[in-house]
Amino acid sequence: MVGLSEGEKHFIRGGIAQDLRSDGRKRLQFRSISVETGVIPQANGSARVRLGATDVIASIKAELGKPSILRPDKGKVSIFVDCSPTAAPMFEGRGGEELSNDLSVALQRCLLGGTSGAGAGIDLSSLIIVDGKVCWDLYIDGLVISSDGNLLDALAAAIKVALSNTGIPKVSVLGASSDEQPDVDVSDEEFLQFDTSGVPVIVTLTKVGRHYIVDATSEEESQMSSAISVSVNRRGQICGLTKRGGAGLDPSVVLDMISVANSVSQQLITVLDSEIAAAEASEE
């Protein structure tokens, strides 16, 4: 996270105003995305997404657990992001903690819905095995290997691809007794593919001057006055919204940004789906 001089900032602002960014992209253009699945063999599902020089890995592990008393018919999902010092020396020890927490909270908000579990991008009721007794606990771990801006979008894309790669083992319930822990038999052979049609992607719009850009590099991010991360699913519904940055925004500007994010996200979903299909085809 190097600082930028006034002259460079002026140049970046000029580029964004003239719709020609430092690497030649237009304002609403993403960097090239490359996707790999199955990078962590011992996890249930995993994916590695490269967005320009930003490199993230998402891994998903499913373990058996007890559902919470408040929501006995839903499974549990927890999202945790770690910025490793291999990305930048300043992430050593507690240095990356603030960034990791920010990212974890933003991802939880966008993918998991409210505290009641309603409206979550991931269908939690598909994770239940025995109501009130046994459910699947999904642990989603994100790892940042290399950081060049726009970590949130890359992590959300990685989680979406990892979920499509995830196989939850088939469980058959034995023993219908009414005691605490019914016996379950976890199959080693059969797997259920996770349903990812409802999983949203996140598009971060960074406001620089009077214009918004998509997929900011770390230099452009240092320039931002404010940024909005919008999570949109395939049906065009907004699943979560996070505002970053200190500057205040006019409400009409916020609505405009949301509609722009909506249209951009449909393109992103299409690109991701084709990448997922290509990755799965190459695996077979």
């Binding site: 602002r13 020609l20 430092s22």
Partner: peptide, 14 residues
Amino acid sequence: SWSFTPLETRKHIC
């Protein structure tokens, strides 16, 4: 905005 680099030069720079 009048002091921004003109678009042609900017294209060459990029």
